[in-house]
Nucleic acid binder design. Structure first.
Lengths: 335, 335
DNA sequence: CTGAAAGCGCTTACAG
DNA sequence: CTGAAAGCGCTTACAG
């Protein structure tokens, strides 16, 4: 039923070796023979079995990506960037998410050992970093989409998180704000600490002291953004700005501020992070620090692909720039 | 380097056949022999090569999914549901998106012929339906996540779109609205026509005539939702409600209404469709017809898996229910 | 209950 | 430039 290389060889009156040679344009083949073989291939609609090729060659054309839940819009964007790049290279991409915790990691490890793929992309690694390190040591090419320099032993791509924090701070300072609430993500993340550092350092460089009580650790959910605002308000603290470490948190802050009767941006200016599609749909639309999410995914995929081609990993992480996108929640300062 | 079945056989003092038998618990194996083999497997950390197994058996444990861009939040949710189900079954999932049109479909077709996977999930098929049909004929198990009964020759899972339209209409009628704008998706989609039908029929069943000029075809983008409202307003038509066929469109309508000085929900009530995460973050939060997106993905995956196990496809499409989620953009009617 | 052998569909030295 | 043969790592009748 399936057309095999043997069928092609027979129909073309040559050996399987020769068919293989024209298939992979490897070794010298007589031009006329090659043409004949190609014709037969077309006529029969022959496509080599990826399994057989993979087995014979010891590797195939399949990559895998391990990513957080796709319900996080930024993960979906990064993944889309990776898919596009992988697809363009003619590779397949196996998708694993961290939906089911340890159990699902175990299953993942099984696939790895089964060498079902030839390279791995890890998006925002957390506790699975050990697993990644083990694989890496095993010889599996691994690339991380991650925070700068947190895992220096891996090739990785990252964004300028500290600069992002700085951009947010400069903008709020220019708007005359002096008492911002910072809703961070989980502070075990290096990216989060970098954003915070960049923000606070910039504030202080401009003579604005940042009261630590105005830094609240969130978990990147809408709810945590709202709660941070509610709590601060309940404590009687005042604020004239919010810098949330992601757009979802900023959206939550927006809701809580409205509920508390604070006007945005007049009373409180709000700046988010990421620039996911949601950011343009809130009321008012969010000013935010844009991360080039698709580009991150694509760059990581390309890096992995080039490693498979035997190119050495870059000494430094690949770092893509963040930039400020100004919308109504923290408009451009009037000159 | 790689531990093979031969290594295990040697270490356990048995043949490869026997190792294979205990691996697949197939055929009779002496209990003690089996135990010994298992020990060796554990000790050596042996995992069968998925490629070799696939080649020998003629099929492996890999599925593929062909889905629209993950930038559509609903696609990301459906995909997440599918990943979870596939992963739980111990299968791998190869991801293809329609990012690059025909070119990417060609590449996709290549992977298919290479039998890189054993079953295919198609999410919201449009022009690639022919390709799917061809594959299906070839013997590849295919399952669709699609609109009810549009492709009766495929096993598929769908939602109650007409009912969704009806729910939206009933809610708006209960709020006393009589002049709704309907922003549809592309009307070539069966789901879109079903939603529209359900909506209009319900209106008319309640003695409310629906002026066809108040049905505007959109393309599921935020922009198209906003434009539909702007155009209607520019034409001097009046409206007291909007029913958008997806939440993004509803978010766009919200923006345009605000810009036009209409209050939501007082002047204009707005109902969306899907209930993606964004829906809870708009101002006001969206009342919307919820689609069980993850469940759709999971159900499709399970259906595909059961087909691979040789179970016959269900005669009828699997249909999951939509339900109305009431938020502030169209609040519950006061009794 | 167990093993030797053939076969899955390719690639790759090795000869010629 | 081309072919016969071995090998990739498994499974599966077929004998015993």
């Amino acid at each position: 039923m399936r057309v095999t290389i043997a069928d092609v060889a027979r129909a073309a009156g040559v050996s399987k070796s020769t068919v293989s040679r024209v298939l992979n344009s490897k070794g010298e083949v007589d031009a006329r023979t090659a043409r004949r073989v190609r014709h037969v291939i077309d006529r029969l609609g022959y496509v080599p079995s990826s399994r057989a090729v993979g087995l014979a060659r010891g590797r195939g054309r399949t990559l895998a990506v391990l990513t957080p839940s796709l319900s996080w819009p930024w993960a979906a964007e990064v993944l889309q960037g990776a898919v596009d790049a992988v697809e363009a290279a003619g590779y397949g991409l196996l998708l694993f998410t961290r939906g089911r915790g340890r159990e699902s990691m175990a299953r993942f490890a099984g696939q790895v050992s089964a060498s079902a793929f030839d390279g791995l992309l890890v998006v925002e690694p957390e506790w699975q970093i050990e697993a990644a390190a083990t694989l890496h040591r095993t010889g599996l090419p691994v690339v991380l989409v991650d925070d700068r320099a947190r895992h220096p032993s891996f090739p990785c791509v990252a964004t300028t998180n500290a600069l992002g924090g700085e951009l947010a701070a400069r903008h709020l300072l220019a708007l005359g704000r002096r008492a911002p609430l910072v809703v961070t993500g989980p502070q075990r993340f290096g990216s989060v600490r970098d954003r915070l550092d960049g923000f606070v350092r910039t504030l202080e460089a401009h003579g604005v002291e940042h009261d630590p009580r105005r830094t609240v650790e969130g978990d990147f959910t809408v709810r945590s953004g709202a709660e941070a605002v509610e709590k601060l308000l309940a404590d009687g603290q005042d604020l004239d700005a919010v810098f949330a470490h992601n757009d979802l948190g900023a959206a939550g802050a927006l809701q809580a501020l409205r509920a508390a009767g604070r006007r945005v941006p007049e009373d409180v200016a709000v700046v988010g992070f990421d620039d996911v599609p949601l950011a343009a749909c809130t009321d008012p639309p969010l000013t935010t620090v844009r991360q080039p999410l698709r580009e991150l995914g694509a760059a990581a995929a390309d890096l992995l692909l080039s490693r498979l081609d035997g190119k050495p990993p870059p000494a430094e992480p690949v770092v893509l720039p963040t930039e400020l996108v100004v919308r109504d929640s923290a408009p451009a300062p009037v000159p």
